[in-house]
Design a protein around this nucleic acid. Structure first.
Length: 479
RNA sequence: CGGAGUGUGGCUCAGUUUGGUAGAGCGCAGCGUUCGGGACGCUGAGGUCGCAGGUUCAAAUCCUGUCACUCCGACCA
């Protein structure tokens, strides 16, 4: 692999300081810039292109399940936010308000939306009157504001981009179905497109969304062993519908409240991609969302035969993958490092020697493997290698998670695991809030979720109090 | 919001202890030589030292206040 000593000297090693490594990568991979407003980041073209690919792929999957896109207001009158008690209590501490219009003070303060349940509810109350109007399967792509105290690019910013889906249904069963359908969409998206393995499960009472009956989540493990909640889907029952008087006349001519759901995924998922796949050379993007999948690096680009080969290759590759050519006057070595920093999955080197031999050199970002390929086979090899990179990244991420996941029965063992490292630990729980809070207090470990496929025939004792256990829970330190 | 740290050209920082009118490396621009793992030479542009007060003949440096950013905790997507 050659001599590494002069390379990537400017980013922190992830083993030395993972948090510092993360911000170094975010900045050096050219994803964002800081702005003069604390916690509000400027997403640069390369970072936004990643988000565009994420949006495109998610949107396609939403629409395949019948979802339609809409746009709701940015502002929520304070009285509207107050209507659902749990909801307002959950969000009040981090809401930003508009108090003036020009020089005049407003009669009622307007919240800048931290999430739009109340706006959708207000709208649905007017828009729905019959069972024939149901279900409503709406989604919006927008930004929301939460006045966070400490902020980090993508992971916790005061304004962030996301999508929020809000649905209304005639029956509880149908709403629960929708909640789980969307959770599955998120899970498949993470695994197939982002190459991030996730655990699907239900949040505990303590961790669930403000105003929800139940919250479902997908949890991913980052390279440092910490957990990142990567997408959530909430079932609301008819709680919001009662607070906002969303009524419809059913087939039996009786007025009923709708049953609702909401579900969201944000630009935080870009943080998950960075922290799941990245290494000490920088970002590592799964081919499915990489804005540039193949970067062609000409060597001796002033030579005519190289130029000819480059434009031919570009023309051929552009038809099948997202391709770009680095024609800057940097040295080849510099270009290699820079493109590795930016996470470009595959590099294609072409110089006078290659032209002579009728071949090119492909270099994989994930393994650094160098592969000489006949000119005639470039398309098929590129396609196959990109596919292999995508799979390999998923496998590595899953391996990392499995290596840092444990199952324990005794609190002593539980404690020791978290004393020594960040990890996921499977441990049984009695279901009471006190135990959960004590664990969090003592070890700063939270319940990540109760995984769906592990709740059958639970026996044995709660990890904390020793009483009869009711649930299997995945515990971990979280972002 | 609690703890710690940092603000000096685009970036990383020196200079602050002991006040005397601003430096380096990288980057940037031009020209030339280079080009298979972060090339080199020459020339050049660029800073009212985070902001506001104060002390002083004189402040990047001392005092007060304030703002921002980073990291570690508590909370969220």
């Amino acid at each position: 692999m050659g001599d590494d000593k002069n390379q990537v000297e400017s980013i922190t090693n992830m083993e030395d300081d993972f948090a510092k490594w993360y911000t170094d990568v975010v900045l050096k991979a050219d994803l964002i810039g800081y702005t003069t407003v604390k916690g509000c980041m400027a997403i640069k073209p390369y970072g936004y292109a990643i988000w565009e690919n994420i949006m495109h792929e998610l949107d396609r999957r939403f629409k395949a399940t019948g979802v339609q896109n809409v746009s709701m207001p940015l502002f929520i009158p304070e009285s509207l936010l107050q209507k659902e008690k749990d909801h307002v209590e959950g969000f009040a501490p981090e809401v930003a308000f508009v108090t003036h219009g020009g020089a005049e003070q407003l009669q009622e303060r307007l919240c800048v939306r931290p999430t739009s349940e109340t706006l959708f509810c207000d709208f649905y109350a007017k828009d729905i009157s019959s069972y024939r109007d149901l279900p409503r399967l709406y989604n919006q792509w927008c930004s929301v504001v939460r006045w966070e105290k400490t902020t980090r690019p993508f992971l916790r910013s005061r304004e962030f981009l996301w999508q929020e889906g809000h649905t209304a249904h005639a029956t509880a069963d149908e709403a629960i179905d929708r909640t789980l359908t969307m959770l599955n969409v998120y899970a498949e998206f993470c695994e197939e497109v982002l190459a991030i393995p996730v655990i699907k499960g239900e949040k505990t009472e303590k961790e669930k969304f403000a105003g929800a009956v139940s919250t479902y989540t997908i949890e991913a493990m980052m390279h440092d062993g910490k957990a990142l909640q990567s997408g959530t889907s909430h079932y609301f029952g008819d709680g919001f519908a009662k607070a906002f008087e969303i009524l419809f006349t059913d087939r039996d001519n009786i007025q009923k409240n709708v049953h609702q759901t909401s579900w969201g995924m944000s630009t935080r998922i870009i943080g998950a991609v960075i922290m799941t796949h990245g290494d000490n050379r920088g970002l590592k993007l799964p081919p499915e969302i990489a804005p540039i999948q193949v970067m062609i690096v000409p060597i001796r680009q002033e030579k005519e035969e190289v130029q000819g080969a480059v434009s031919l290759l570009k023309e051929r590759l552009e038809k099948i993958v997202r391709t770009d050519v680095d024609l800057t006057d940097k040295s080849p070595g510099y270009k290699y490092s820079e493109q590795e920093m930016r996470g470009i999955p595959l590099r294609l080197e072409i110089g006078p020697k290659d032209v002579e031999k009728g071949q090119v050199l492909l270099v994989r970002r994930d393994t650094q493997e160098k592969i000489a390929v006949e000119m005639a086979e470039v398309e098929t090899r590129v396609i196959n290698i990109l596919k292999d990179i995508q799979e390999n990244m998923y496998i590595s991420a899953k391996k990392n998670r499995e290596e840092h996941t444990y199952s324990v029965e005794a609190y002593e063992d539980f404690k020791q695991l978290f004393d020594n490292n960040n990890c996921f630990v499977r441990a049984k729980w009695c279901g009471c809030k006190e135990c959960e809070e004590k664990i969090k207090e003592e070890l700063s470990v939270s319940s990540r979720c109760m995984p769906f496929d592990e709740q059958n025939s639970i026996d044995g004792e709660c990890i904390y109090c020793g009483k009869k256990a009711k649930y299997m829970v995945i515990w971990g330190k979280a972002y």
